[in-house]
């Protein structure tokens, strides 16, 4: 668990990273900031706007490019990671199949009115089944990762160690770690390959969008109105668990039907007691090792099916 972290909404239109840095890093701290923009994938190096915004020396850790270099040098690891990727995708598909069978009845039970004495235990049990499935899925994915680690020992491989040594040097001399959003799976797996938080230790972190998701105990994928397929939120897998009791929901205004009371109820109850925090433009959540503190305008989903502001 981190002692101090700040989670932010998307930074493209309303950048507030600079303010967050000012909270965690004294102005006279000359050490550079380090940034991970691996979630942007091949656009990783296009960080000019971020550099201009923060107005401090910044080193991009080039995590995406480093992994690409590793893949060039270590084809065996590349193939193994691809195979794991395919397995994870297949497992997610199977989980999704089971989830749809549980979510529709759970929603219907919330919708129904009638004898509460009959309905309440059914709702409770339906929700417990959804939660149990989420837990099973996280365990299954953790097993896949454990099998992968045991078989391929990525941290011991020369190509990985070489990049890790360089990363460690940058991380040790950094004042603060900035983690940009982007592709949540790419971020999670590439950061894990380098055990980046192990290298960095318990020092200040500022993360936004997808990176805020990966810091939490579990990563919840969501979109209430996709053009295809089910719109049930899915647990992807465990995150790094560096901030507690949180489900981070970036771009909530675009992705969540917040006025759908049943949908909001279902979501908030499913992940209770975690704080289901909407990370929209301008949202900010500060973690100082004991509790969350939200900036004005930051909102959360409530178990009664509403959205409420939690900012000071």
């Amino acid at each position: 668990m981190l002692s101090s972290a700040i989670l932010l909404g998307p930074q493209r239109k309303v950048p507030i990273v600079r303010d967050a840095i000012a909270t965690l890093v004294p102005r006279d701290d000359r050490r550079p900031l380090v940034a991970v923009t691996a979630g942007w994938e091949e656009r990783e190096s296009e960080d000019q706007e971020l550099r201009e915004h923060v107005e401090r020396p910044l080193v991009n850790l080039e995590v995406w490019a480093r992994v690409e270099r590793i893949f060039e040098r270590d084809r065996e690891l590349l193939l193994a990671m691809r195979q794991r990727h395919d397995t994870l995708r297949a497992v997610q598909e199977l989980y999704r199949l089971r989830l749809s069978g549980l979510m529709d009845p759970a929603r219907e039970l919330l919708r129904r009115t009638g004898d509460e004495a009959l309905l309440a235990p059914e709702r409770h049990d339906a929700m417990a089944m959804v939660r149990a499935l989420d837990q099973q899925h996280m365990r299954r994915v953790a097993e896949i990762h454990a099998e992968f680690e045991a078989r391929w020992r990525p941290h011991e491989r020369a190509a990985v160690q070489r990049e890790k040594r360089e990363l460690q040097r940058f991380l040790q001399s950094a004042s603060c770690l900035l983690l940009a959003g982007g592709h949540v799976s790419v971020l999670l797996h590439r950061l894990r390959l380098f055990d980046l938080f192990g290298l960095y230790g318990d020092r200040p972190v500022i993360a936004w969008s997808a990176s805020a998701m990966v810091l939490a105990e579990r990563i919840v994928l969501f979109h209430d109105d996709p053009p295809q397929g089910s719109s049930h939120a899915e647990v992807m897998e465990a995150g790094f668990g560096l901030v507690p009791d949180l489900v981070a929901l970036p771009h909530a205004k675009k992705r969540l039907l917040a006025d759908d009371t049943l949908r909001v109820q279902l979501f908030a109850r499913r992940f209770a007691p975690a704080l289901c925090a909407l990370l929209d433009d301008g949202s900010r959540l500060d973690w100082r090792g004991a509790r969350w503190r939200a900036a004005a305008g930051t909102r959360r989903l409530t178990e009664s099916g509403g959205v409420e502001e939690i900012g000071a």
Binding site: V184, S185, A210, H251
Partner: peptide, 10 residues
């Protein structure tokens, strides 16, 4: 051509 809608949060 399904896009990365569920996985990308920029």
């Amino acid at each position: 051509f399904p896009g990365p809608l569920w996985l990308v949060y920029e």
